[in-house]
Structure formats: C-alpha cells, structure tokens
Design a protein around this nucleic acid. Sequence first.
DNA 1: AGCTACCAAGCAAGCGCTTGGTTTGGCAAG
DNA 2: CTTGCCAAACCAAGCGCTTGCTTGGTAGCT
Lengths: 196, 196
Amino acid sequence: MPDTPAIHGIDDSPRGRLLSAAAHLFRDKGFDRTTVRDIAAAVGIQSGSIFHHFKSKEDILFAVMEEVIRFNTERLRQAVADADTPLEQLRNLVRAELTATVGDTREAMVVMVAEWRCLGEAKQQEALALREIYEQIWLDVLGRLHKAGAFHADPFIMRRLLTGMIGWTPNWFSTNRRLSVEDLADLIVDRVVGEA
Amino acid sequence: MPDTPAIHGIDDSPRGRLLSAAAHLFRDKGFDRTTVRDIAAAVGIQSGSIFHHFKSKEDILFAVMEEVIRFNTERLRQAVADADTPLEQLRNLVRAELTATVGDTREAMVVMVAEWRCLGEAKQQEALALREIYEQIWLDVLGRLHKAGAFHADPFIMRRLLTGMIGWTPNWFSTNRRLSVEDLADLIVDRVVGEA
DNA sequence: AGCTACCAAGCAAGCGCTTGGTTTGGCAAG
DNA sequence: CTTGCCAAACCAAGCGCTTGCTTGGTAGCT
C-alpha cells in the first residue's frame, strides 16, 4: 500500500515517507482536495495517526515546502560554485532549477508554486524568507552577467521571465522524449544572452 | 454589497455579475476555498439562489473559463488581422495575451490556469478543445516566423516558453509601474527573435 | 519504565445542494 | 388604467455528508 516514489532530499523516516506521499497527492489533486485520510492511506496508517507527526494538515504542506526549498537552495549554491565564468554559472543555474522542476523534486516544486495561498499568513511569511535567499543566488549571477554586458534587460525582469519559462515546464516537458534537460537548458540560456 | 469589478467580455445580467464575483473570489482564495455562500454574499443574495442560475458550483467555474477563453480567442484573431508582417503579428499576439493576463480579464485568466483540475473529466475535455483553437493561432504565427528564419528553436517549444513567461506575469507585473505592457511585450518578443 | 508509533472511534463544524414557498417586473386582456 | 397572470429571481430553512482533528488506549523496542 505505501510506496510513493520518494522525493530527493527527504529521508525515509515515517515522517519523511509521509511528506513524500503528501507532496505526491498535493500535486495530483491539490492541497484542498487531498484529505488527511488520503495521505494516511498512501502510507498505510490510520488518518488520526498523522497528527502524531504533524500538528495540522497545513503543517505538512509547510514542511514539504521547507524541505524542498532548503534542498534546492543548496543545489543552486553548488551550481554556482561548480562554474568558472558567469555564463557557465547561469547555464548551471538553469540546469539545476530545471532538474528540480521536472526531475527529482518535481512534485514538491509544483506544490510550492501552486499551493502557496493554502498556508496561513505567518507560515507564508516564513516560506517567503527562505524563497528570498534562493532568489538572491539568481539575482547575483544575473547581475554579474548584466554588468558584463551579456544582456541589456533589467536583471530583475529577466529573472521573472526565467521563472516563468522554467516554472511552466512541468506542464509539458517529458523526461522520456528527444529533448534532454541539458538541451532545454541551453535553449533557455539563449533566451537570455542571445543565440550564437 | 455587490460591486466586484466586472471582467471584460462578461455582461452584467444577474448571471454575469455572479460570474465576475466568482472569478474574483476563485482567484483570491482558490476554487475549493471559495464557498457558494461567499459567492452569494458577494452579489448580495442567498446561497441557495445561486442554483437558479447554475446547476452546480463546478458549472460556475466552467462558465468563467469558457467566457474568458472565447473572448480572448477573438482578441487574438484581431491581433493577427491587425498586423501586416509576421513579426508584427507576433508582437500583437504578445501584447494581446499580456493584456488578457494582467489587464481586463486578469482574474479569469489566472483562474483558468490555476483551477484547471477542479473541473470534472468531461468539462476538462470541453475546455481543452477551446484551448486548442486558441493555441493554434499562436502556432500559426510562430510557424510562419520560424519558416522565415526569424528564430531557430522548435515553434512548439518556443510557444511553451512564451506561455510560461506571459503566464507568470500576474505574479509580479503591476500596471502602475514604470514598465508598460507595450515595453514588456517588446522585451518578450526580443526573447524570441533576438535583440537589435 | 518510558518512548515512539500507531489504532479505533467519533465529534463539531462546514460544505454543496435541495426544497417549497414568496417577491418582482413586464405585459396583454378587459 | 386597471387587473390578472406568468416566469424569472430570490428567500428561509435545513438535510446529508465530508472534513480536520481529538481522545483514550495499546504494541513493541530499548
């Protein structure tokens, strides 16, 4: 009965398995249409038992978001560190966010952008703080490229266009097609710095 | 008590006012978190009276989507007809979709992409058919541009990147800022055909 | 003994929707 | 100008069901 494919960056403690299952369901049906009974059934326990691990359903959603953003912030950091030139840093960032979005943390990433408003005011603010750290990594790299004259548009706006392009990919990109993540990343990078 | 700002392309019959109010609430709180009592209160009637105009809550959501997609499909048609060169057609398309997305049909457009899965299978298919007509207009113009050598990437993928860029704008674009819709449109067109 | 992990049962609240009856505005016959 | 009528629009009340969450207790490991 259990066995939802695990999400990268989440361990397989009872709590972790609960999180992976919840993320999967939240992505499939949305937060509101997913009941605690659904989540419980997905890991093979009773609905009431969930509240031994989380104090509310909303807490589960927040935990999913927190885990995935922490994990992927670290991934972005590595992406920047692993490159020498600003252009290569950008390419690595795009690849990293694409991997997060259509790859190993796909469900959780989709949940994060789609179910944002299901969090209460307080937790929304808390998540926003984490999100800002994440965004700053992007802005640093884009700012450096802009200063170097690699593109003319405002770096803030460029980031928003990138967020849109990458954030929409789960709605169409399929891993088992001709187009690889690397090729798509190059294609997106070309939207920023122009083609060869 | 009533007076939700109307959405372009929806009349102000009782039914139309109900639709505008519903679209506004759906965007604000999401479909599931919006109760029929909320919608009723927004137009100043009793919750039960809603079912004189619509046979279910889901029907309201579908009606919102149908109205907005029909209205904006016509807008796209005009945008293409009003331009002479393929490049100007593209620019007009981007402007039109931006206007729909952050302008006069903003709430309904956001609802359409966000609350898709709240429709049952049948109505989802029905909406998809309308959506395909809409998309075909884009693909025709992009296909012509591609054939003319204005850009190298696959037109289907280019459309998806555009969908992402434009679809994300409600999350950051503000009408009362320095950046106008026209300037943003030019900026986005440059992501397709390269800068001057 | 004490901790983690769980079960079985169920409560209070809120939900979409139904029902039966009442108001309202327009319009044609007398 | 009145009267009678009808359909559209709405009200008041509440039914049946699902929801998130609580409670009190138990099994097993250390």
